[in-house]
């Protein structure tokens, strides 16, 4: 009976704690809006020819092994469906097989961290190593990181990579939107955007990019599907994609419009709202402990049909100081009065 009551009590407490969360549910679906001056990049997939100059520029900007001219000419790499990794923040993949035969040609897709407007990785990181910057970038601070890789677990795009081979100081590796490199170049566009010869990448305010993207779709409806990927996906992303073929054929995950952190944080902050529910729960426990203690004579004394609890036949070499097995003050009191 006690357990039953306990479980019931607990569920009541939890239900009560979740109540504010349920109230917040209305806003759960709505993502946190992007900052007005947040920057973004529009990727027009139809214009990319797979030259991989963005990859080379990214490697140079981030200090990874440089890509030589010869390796850029080797187009066999494109077909491998790579994922951005610990030594390359961006990769270009060639998509051919998945496309309808009528399409007749390959599509090149640049993949990198999309810098979500309301990023799950930032919500996940327990030490704040991942941060959403006001200008749009999601940045990483290795000095704070403890390497739990929760960010990798929650990223809907599988973008954070990990230096598993690094024994002592592994880092989470992902595109940092070239944050902090603007001063050096006097141009705050990311290295990949500056390197693109085909004007496939456009760097501007996110709101402006959305406007431009929709204009392009309206002006050339025959060239584009009517979908700006990243406008609403998981609450919006800073990197936006335009394509001539449906995005699921290009390997983009089909995602809802709700930003995962809204639901998760609503529940969490419901349970922890101003620390009231946990404190109340502890107070209930303490009160129960106080009220049901047997020396008040209100509850039945522990009639003991089973074993005598405090009996110690086992380590009875210890001379007794009182009873050696009592555990806390309450219990000592209870047993001594019997």
């Amino acid at each position: 009976m006690e357990l039953d009551r306990r479980a019931f009590l607990k569920s009541v407490v939890i239900a009560g704690a979740l109540e504010p969360a349920a109230g917040a549910r209305a806003s759960v679906g709505e993502a946190r809006p992007a900052a007005a001056d947040a920057m973004g990049v529009l990727v027009d997939v139809t214009k990319c020819n797979g030259c991989r100059r963005c990859e080379a520029a990214c490697r140079a900007a981030n200090g990874f092994d440089a890509l030589s001219e010869e390796s850029l000419k080797d187009r066999s790499v494109l077909a491998q469906l790579r994922q951005p990794g610990a030594a390359d923040y961006t990769v270009v993949n060639e998509i051919t097989a998945a496309l309808p035969a009528a399409e007749g040609r390959s599509v090149y897709v640049k993949r990198n961290c999309l810098h979500c407007v309301d990023p799950a990785c930032v919500s996940a990181c327990l030490v704040g190593a991942l941060r959403k910057q006001p200008q749009g970038a999601v940045t990483y601070d290795a000095a704070k990181c403890m390497g739990c890789r929760y960010c990798m677990v929650v990223c809907p795009f599988q973008m954070p990579a990990y230096e598993y081979e690094n024994v002592l100081t592994p880092q989470v590796r992902k595109c940092g939107f070239c944050t902090g490199q603007a001063q050096a170049t006097n141009d705050d566009a990311p290295a990949c955007v500056r390197a693109c010869p085909k004007e496939c990448l456009t760097y501007a305010r996110r709101s402006e990019l959305l406007h431009r993207a929709h204009t392009r779709i309206t002006e050339q409806p025959e060239s584009y599907v009517d979908h700006v990927y990243g406008e609403h996906e998981v609450g919006g992303t800073s990197w936006l994609y335009l394509s001539g073929v449906p995005f699921d054929l290009l390997g983009f995950p089909t995602l809802g419009t709700a930003a995962p952190p809204r639901l998760s944080e609503a529940v969490q902050h419901g349970v922890f709202s101003h620390f009231m529910p946990p404190v109340a729960w502890c107070a209930i426990l303490g009160l129960t402990m106080w009220l049901t203690r047997s020396d008040r004579g209100e509850s039945a004394p522990p009639e003991s049909p089973g074993p005598v609890v405090h009996d110690d036949g086992f380590v009875n070499r210890l001379p007794e100081r009182g009873k050696s097995h009592e555990f806390d003050g309450e219990c000592v009191g209870a047993s001594e009065r019997q």
Partner: peptide
């Protein structure tokens, strides 16, 4: 943990991240 020696980091107030 990749950086097990940072396991105590959640204690530091400037790293607190109550959303997680």
């Amino acid at each position: 943990l990749g950086r097990y020696y940072n396991i105590w980091h959640p204690i530091l107030p400037h790293m607190w991240q109550g959303n997680s």
